[in-house]
Structures are given as structure tokens and as C-alpha cells.
Design a protein around this nucleic acid. Structure first.
Lengths: 312, 312
DNA sequence: AAATCCATGAAGTGAGGCTACAGGGCGGCG
DNA sequence: CGCCGCCCTGTAGCCTCACTTCATGGATTT
């Protein structure tokens, strides 16, 4: 089965007539007709039927045209792939960031990638659930991901995992709140207040359960929201407490809420970069991953975090 | 860019040497060498480098080989498509069922499809979250799905939606439990007992919240489990109450638990069949969908449900 | 240094897709 | 109702291009 013939079928499905198809492919109608005939003989299936003075695709023809379209897009991807290698090395790198990763890493990373001459670095936003991160590696060279249970979940899927950061979860407390006076919070301190959840994929409930066990008393769960900003605002407005990732939330600390670490409870998420192994092996990708690791390290060691060392 | 040339590159990536590639494709090494040369000139990219007395793919070559593999799989899908049309109409239909849909519909449906002569009906099990159902339509002709918010969520994605069944959620109560004596339960009746959740995608929390509002008192949430059988067993063992889909759970009623409908609270899930519109238009698919609707209706009107009419 | 393996180049051949042209079915229009 | 025009299809001939054969040269092994 030949790709050119499939393309003709696809074109015919779009244009409707043999003549228009021929024109679109810059050949004569006769050529189109002949190729269709050969395709049908080769497949042993009737793809087109005469209809009036034109032709109409059969169901099989429509189905094959659909399949042909998929082949076309695969071909287009191949063409796109080659475009990124015209200089002899991969010059286009596409990466997917979830919101807080973009906030943390992008500003610094964009500066760093400028050092690689000729590199086009494209950052895209994606906000999938945990299972969705892995699938994105089909569409992007590098996928920033976070996980509750450590980086191993992704490695089990056959992906290359580059650990970037382990980010603790702290308790966000309204400014002026009674708990804001303490530098460290214990389960008994926080158990009585209503909780606003962080988005799915964070160990919100796991941590809350730890707190319940330690305090030996049930916690009050209020609604969860899929946006850290909303949670920050809710906490600031005094609606309750929340568990927020430290490095992300720290920048906004002081706008109505403060962060306090939990004592006696282990709570953090790992932030990693994912790539398919064959992609990760490429030198350009390696370079970008190295820059990403450097950026992550400098984020973790940033002055504003050292100033906030009391959180540890 | 020609598919045959890409295949040669792919083969070379697998086999490692021009000679082996030539043998695999039943041509002479010279032919392979020439095609690779043409491909490189046409793409303007170096794909192979001499290495010792053999050759080695460059990074661009490896990347292109990967892209070529994707094109190959698309081609294979096209071939598979045509196989299902050798009789002039689609003879193979692949459908995806989530567990309780399989339990409800498959036994009867398999009988019905036997009436279509020459049809190969393949049922597969898939258990995705709500967002995942839509994606399955790329891999299956028909996808059984359930949704909390009615069928519209899928229609918005451009999918054809065939409503099959609206299944109420009832309260599962341990046999001999105080509440088992009542034929209908109200929010105040059930609010005090611990709840076991149904899997994600069921309106477990939505319903529970309605109950809380009606009873004006918080409910006690115990763990949720992604398996209805486990929940049934937990209820039977007296660990608490649960919300279970009526038609699915009814068959097991009596094995330690009974179902009681909720009054004053609207709780149900819609079960639908999904298909890409182009697929749904095919006559074979239409036939199967018709059978599926018929089976769904006969499930809803089944004797054991009429016997349990007091549930309504 | 000879032998061997592997890839590549040059020349010739053949399959197959294309054009040009002719023919035939179907619908529209006077 | 018959003529015209549109659209598809068939045939003959050309020409492109992938393949084979044969020959050459670089790299590794003994």
C-alpha cells in the first residue's frame, strides 16, 4: 500500500470529485482514476462508487480516507521533526510546564537557554492529572511533572526521569491568625480549623490523614479548588487553612497569609522532568535538561528561601 | 518524502548495517545506499555517518527513524482498517466497556450481535476516569461511558453520544441494619453513619453534600475504593453505608446488604455509548448501537427490576 | 600485507505512473 | 426531446526512478 495513493483517496474525500482532486495534486483526472483503481485492486475493496456523473466514496472508502489522514499527520510530524535538525542538531525544543513549575522555573530558564546559539525553546502550559503527564511525552520533548509518591511512578512507565526539586508542603495561615505567631505548627494546633484542599495530585488528603492520626481527631474538610491562587485568597480572607507547596506560595507570602511548616508530618511533592528515553538521549535535550537542573537548584537555594530558612 | 525511504531508514535503525537492511527488504545493499543518499539530499540533513567499516545513524537519523516508526504504525492501522471491510462492509467492531457496563450489557448484547452474520464483535475492558473516555474513541469504534453531569460533557467534545440508561444511585445498607426496615431513606436517616465512597466519576460527593444540606449536619466520610464489589463487601460487613448504582448492585442484593432509594435527593449517573461522528455514521456501527440501545432498554425493564419496583 | 567485510559509485534495465487523447454515461437546458 | 457539456475512465506512449550488476575503496582482522 502506497502513501501517495492514500493521499489521493484522502484528497478525494475532501474535494468530492476526481477532477478537483487531480487539480489539487497537479495531475490529470486520468492519473487519479488510475491510481484509485490500482488501490482498490490492491486492497480488494470497493472504495468509490459512481453516483450520477460524479463519484461517491463507499463506507470503506471513507474509513480508509480517515486512516489516510492519520498517516498524513504522522508524515507531517516526520517533516516537522526534520525541520528541527536542519542545522545538524535539534534546534527546536518543546517543553510542557504545569502552572507552578512555569512560575518557578521559566523566568530563569529562559535566560539560560539563550546561551545555546540557534536554539528555539518553546514553553507550553499543560495542567493534566498525574496520569496525564506521561502521555504528554508523546507531544513534547520535555514534560515537567509533579508526583506525590516520589519520582518512581514515571520511571515505571519506561520514561527517563530527571529529579529537579523536592518541594515541602506548608500550612498557609491568615495573617493575624492565632497560629501565625508560632514558627512551627503541630497537628494539635491545626486540627480544629477548616481546610481548603490543593488540587488533585497533591498529597492533600494523605497529609490531612496524618494530621488526624497525630491529633487523634477528625479534620474539617471544606471545598477543594484546582488553583493555588484561589486557595491563597481564601486563606487570606480567613476562610480556613490550606496546604500549599512552599516555593510556589512563598513569593506571595505576606499578601494576607503566612506559611508555617508542619512538625511531625512528612509532606512534599517531587518535581521532575520527563522525557521518552530516545528523546532524552539527544545532546540538545541533555543540554536543556542540564540547564533545567541548574535552574531548579538555584530556585531551591534562592536568597528569599534562605531568608525563610526558619521554615525548615 | 517517500514512505518507502522512511521504512529503509527505520529498518537501518533496527538492523544496524546497510547489508542487513538490504537483506531484510530483499534488495541489494547498493539500492539501500542509494535511497538513503536520496533521502538525505531531499531532506537536507545528514542521517548516517560512516563509522568504522559500517555506518551509524546521527541524532537526526535516529529522530527520523522514530518518526518513521510512527508513520509505519499509522500505515498498519490503515491496513487493519481495510481488513474489516473485505466483505464490502465493516465486519469488525471493537467496543470498550467499563466494568459495570460490561456486567450489565455484555451478556445480552453478545447474543444480539450473533444475529448479524459475519460480524466479529470484540469487547474490551477499560476503566478510565471521566476525561479518559473520550480519548478511547480513537482506539475503539464504540466506547461505553458514564457521566455524572449528564451526557452533554461528551457531546461538547464533538463526539456522537447515544444515551443508553439513566441509573439511579441507591443507599446500600447491611442486612439486619436498623435502616433496612424502611423502604425509603431520607437524609436525616442516613446522615449519622460512616460512608464508603464509590469510585471517582460517580457523584458520590455531590450526593453526599446534598444529604448534608438536607440533614443540616456533616456526614462521616470513610475511605473510597475503586471497586464496587469491595464496597458491597464492606457494607455487608457492617462498616457503613455506601451509594451504589442500582442496576449493577441489584444483582448482588441479598448477599449481606440491601438497596434503599433516597428520597428528596436526586442521584444518578447516565450511561452512554460514544463514538467519533464519522465512525458512528457507518451502517455496521449503527446496527450495533441499535442493538446496544435495545439491550439497555431490556436491562432497565428486566423482571428482577420490576420485582424491585418498590425502589422507585 | 593479504584477506575480508562493508558501503558506495556508475551504467543499464524495467516497472509503473504520468500525459494526451478518445470514448461513454449522466444531467441540464433550450 | 435531443443536443450540449461535465465528469469519469480507458488506451497508448513516454519518461522518471528504483533496482541490479559490477567495480572500487576504506577499515578491520590475522
Amino acid at each position: 500500500m502506497d502513501f501517495k495513493r492514500l493521499r489521493i483517496l484522502r484528497e478525494l474525500a475532501d474535494r468530492g470529485t476526481v477532477g478537483a482532486t487531480a487539480e489539487a495534486m497537479k495531475v490529470t483526472p486520468s492519473a487519479v482514476s488510475q491510481q484509485l483503481k490500482t488501490l482498490q485492486e490492491e486492497l480488494g475493496v470497493v472504495l468509490v462508487k459512481k453516483s450520477g456523473r460524479g463519484v461517491r466514496l463507499t463506507e470503506a472508502g471513507l474509513a480508509m480516507a480517515g486512516a489516510a489522514a492519520e498517516v498524513s499527520t504522522a508524515m507531517a510530524r516526520a517533516e516537522a521533526t526534520i525541520d528541527t535538525y536542519r542545522r545538524g542538531w535539534q534546534t527546536h525544543v518543546r517543553a510542557a510546564f504545569f502552572p507552578s513549575a512555569a512560575e518557578m522555573f521559566l523566568p530563569g530558564l529562559l535566560h539560560r537557554v539563550k546561551a545555546i546559539d540557534g536554539l528555539h525553546f518553546e514553553a507550553h502550559f499543560e495542567d493534566p492529572n498525574v496520569a496525564g503527564f506521561a502521555g504528554l511525552t508523546a507531544d513534547y520533548d520535555i514534560v515537567l511533572a509533579h508526583s506525590v509518591d516520589g519520582p518512581d511512578v514515571f520511571a515505571r512507565l519506561g520514561l527517563t526521569v530527571v529529579p529537579l526539586l523536592d518541594e515541602p508542603l506548608d500550612v498557609a495561615v491568615p495573617e493575624g491568625h492565632a497560629l501565625a505567631g508560632k514558627s512551627t505548627l503541630r497537628a494539635e494546633d491545626v486540627i480544629g480549623f477548616p481546610w481548603m484542599g490543593v488540587p488533585e495530585g497533591f498529597p492533600f488528603d494523605t497529609v490531612l490523614r496524618q494530621i488526624e492520626v497525630q491529633a487523634d481527631s477528625p479534620a474539617v474538610r471544606a471545598q477543594t479548588f484546582p488553583d493555588l491562587r484561589v486557595l491563597e485568597a481564601l486563606v487570606s480572607a480567613g476562610h480556613g487553612l490550606s496546604l500549599l507547596p512552599r516555593y510556589t506560595a512563598l513569593k506571595n507570602q505576606g499578601r494576607g497569609f503566612v506559611l508555617r511548616p508542619l512538625a511531625g508530618v512528612k509532606a512534599s511533592r517531587s518535581i521532575v522532568a520527563l522525557a521518552r528515553p530516545d528523546v532524552a538521549a539527544r545532546t540538545t535535550i541533555q543540554q536543556v535538561l542540564t540547564l533545567l537542573k541548574a535552574e531548579a537548584q538555584s530556585v531551591a537555594e534562592a536568597p528569599e528561601l534562605r531568608d525563610a530558612a526558619h521554615l525548615n
